[in-house]
Design a protein around this nucleic acid. Sequence first.
DNA 1: TGACTATGACTGACTAGTCAGTCATAAATG
DNA 2: CATTTATGACTGACTAGTCAGTCATAGTCA
Lengths: 227, 227
Amino acid sequence: MTKKLTKAAAAKAATRNPEAGEDAAPMSNRATRAAERRDAIVAAAMEEFIARGFAATRLDDIAKRAGVAKGTIYLHFKDKESMFEELVRTVIVPVVVKLSALPPPTSSVRDLIETFAGNFLKEVIGTRRGDLVRLIVAEGPRFPAVADFYYREVVSRGIAGMRALIELGIARGEIHQANLARYPQIVIAPAMIAVIWQSLFARHAPLDAQDMLRVHLDLIFGERRTT
Amino acid sequence: MTKKLTKAAAAKAATRNPEAGEDAAPMSNRATRAAERRDAIVAAAMEEFIARGFAATRLDDIAKRAGVAKGTIYLHFKDKESMFEELVRTVIVPVVVKLSALPPPTSSVRDLIETFAGNFLKEVIGTRRGDLVRLIVAEGPRFPAVADFYYREVVSRGIAGMRALIELGIARGEIHQANLARYPQIVIAPAMIAVIWQSLFARHAPLDAQDMLRVHLDLIFGERRTT
DNA sequence: TGACTATGACTGACTAGTCAGTCATAAATG
DNA sequence: CATTTATGACTGACTAGTCAGTCATAGTCA
């Protein structure tokens, strides 16, 4: 029983790091193909979970979409629930890494935040990742493990990072409202709303997220005079 | 087949309007009890759906919680799906009505919005209604009927109303950023984030929604000097 | 008013179908 | 050939929806 879980974890580890000993050696064919299959399953599972939610998603459908037999899924994941949890980790982590890479802090705080917003726009809003965020909001209460992970890895870091930027902005005189540092959520809120809007209401009323975020930054920093 | 649906609708109508002819006449015991049962089912269903999501909710559990046999549910609702849809309507409509009642427009735009935010805080944020909003975000994509209804009755009205207020604020010189009227979402966003935050992260990091909304209004209107 | 009948709200055991997870077998690999 | 990996038919638990039967209440009549 526990053996299988261990094996799944090992397979996952192999995906990113083919055995500590051989270091940079190329992965064996087997490991490569196993990793490819795992990725296919993760991709298929993401599509299905996003489209139907956790409970209504059938493993048969995931298997079919991934071009794999159902049993194969159980070679990589303990069960449906932990597949969902690992899926979230697998997809979220690279995004966080990407978005955490801030540009040189030589520019103005506004430019820093604007760059971040641009990346967020490109990497999340209106993409499958955005749908995944909506899915986390949807399933979070039923998956404390997911909600905890998301809070720890994404939300708390995002809030902390944004707070640091706001404080820098205040110190430099770019931001005039000191209280803003107490609620970084206010700065992030429109971006989150854009994510949800695209998932739910885009077909009723399309939203120009980029333009909206610019207006929001104008509100925080004051309107741009010259570039 | 269609008869049953009609009957359910009739029972529902009877809840609020006991037969057009007799006007103010008291409802018969039967109709009263039927209405009470329907309400009990709606309340039970809301709890269960919020806790488990649509797909994972068992009608047996709803019945048990409502103190009713499973068959009774089908006297009031066509099936699980339309029960969910009617539930959303039943719960949302009164809230919209309540929140639509604006105070006399003699006060400043800031006061108008602040009053609205206060009501929203009391009626939605941190309540079962707030959880329901999260549920709509969660299930919306799988229930176009629900998403459409919510967009039509809540979102589009809210956006339009807020836009009117913003334009008034601009005209009166209370709001300086004219572009804000193009994205009323920006004004509403923190309130929505507060709703979601309470559902998902309150136990990780409690959020003083009221204070946050005040800070946000300070950002839009400039900080308060005197009252 | 009291007795008798008609109504339809309510019940819950039951059916038919679904789907997560298993495992005996087969294929691939080295 | 031995071992690892993959398959998909199968099982058993679970649940949406049904329906024949019950019974409290409304209606009728003497």
